[in-house]
Design a protein around this nucleic acid. Structure first.
Lengths: 205, 205
DNA sequence: TAGATTGTTAATCGATTAACAATC
DNA sequence: TAGATTGTTAATCGATTAACAATC
């Protein structure tokens, strides 16, 4: 039970889940902490320790039922139901996200796309969503109760967008703008900046 | 000097650099570990400790010259010159990356785009690059000596693409496919999977 | 039974923080 | 000088690993 789960443990669970879903897809019925660790480049002890925070999911001598562990991780991560995600920004990146097929079955669906560019408002995206005026953002989020949003606007607009999202009730933001956001306590933010990731590697070259 | 810098320290440097470049853009000439820490939600002690691995960049009583520290971090991260980046995959995401303006000035430029879809090969992208046949990938990389690549292909092709890249001499891969890659020792891989990032937050909701 | 693998404990390892002398 | 902030040390805190009893 969530005594106090370290963030770093929570951060690994989605990676475990992703690998396990892939195993399930490959019709592997059973796996072990050793096998999973090899696939992921993580020690088997760490996998067992991480899982032990949440319960006992394996069998001595046998390992883990892949399907069962997938179910459990989905439940733990709260992606056993689907979250509606508001997307702000309908530029190249925003549209690529709107079209991305990888959200399905993993707990998320983009339910609305906003932009403040008159040239983009009204645009019909593949998948059926139309780009809405950002001025409708607060109302739409408040009415629908969406808790998760993605920000794909230019850096100089990202903080203002985040402020509006949080004020409308959003509690988790995935930010693609290359800037660190300042948000209230309890609001979660994750960052995706390809340049940051690239720079983490060039150091070693 | 690089005794043995912890990965986790290297991982924070690009975030420091990003914030400092922003400060420079805002014409802030001086900053302190305290101010930078506040912006980033990190303790001032950690920032000073991290920087101390590489030298002494500040002045007691004053703080850090923003421009100077930017220069130093760019040098440390080896992004004071520009890396040519090969991009594999010209789907929605690949094209969004090819059009992305955020690489400029931060050490990277996409120099080639590959895809194996005949319908996409030859396509002219904004910015002037044409999509090349993946069959040319190995030769092109070997001839040009590119060391950095981004992978934006479907999950089931990503490992094969990574293998080809590494074989051709690539040493750093930014992987957008939702799968953990297996690569030889010494090859760096970073992962961007929006679903993983979202799942890291829903746990707390 | 023999072999395998879990869940957990204790030991090790590493990272963060607090504190402060040095000094601008 | 008085105030501020660095770079660094030592203490604290937390995460990883190794080892193994339990048991399938």
């Amino acid at each position: 039970m969530p005594d106090e789960i370290p963030d770093i443990v929570v951060g690994r669970l989605p990676v475990y889940l992703r690998a396990l879903m892939r195993m399930a897809q490959e019709s592997r019925e059973i796996t072990s902490s050793h096998e999973l660790g090899q696939r992921l480049g993580i020690s088997s002890a760490q996998i067992r320790k991480d899982l032990s925070h949440f319960g006992e999911f394996g069998k001595q001598g046998t390992g883990y039922q892949v399907k069962f562990l997938v179910e459990q991780l989905r439940r733990i991560l709260k992606v056993d139901a689907e979250w509606g995600v508001a997307l702000v920004g309908a530029g190249d990146l925003g549209r690529a996200l709107a079209h991305y097929g990888g959200f399905a079955n993993r707990g998320f669906r983009i339910v609305a796309v906003f932009d403040n560019d008159p040239a983009k408002i009204g645009m019909k995206l593949t998948g059926g969503l139309a780009v809405q005026d950002s001025s409708r953002l607060s109302d739409a989020i408040r009415q629908s109760g969406w808790k998760v949003a993605m920000v794909a606007v230019p850096a100089d607009q990202a903080q203002a967008v985040a402020d509006k999202l949080v004020e409308a009730g959003v509690q988790a933001i995935l930010n693609y703008a290359p800037i660190t956001l300042v948000v209230a306590d309890g609001i979660r933010v994750q960052y995706i900046d390809p340049v940051v990731h690239l720079q983490r590697m060039t150091f070693y070259l």
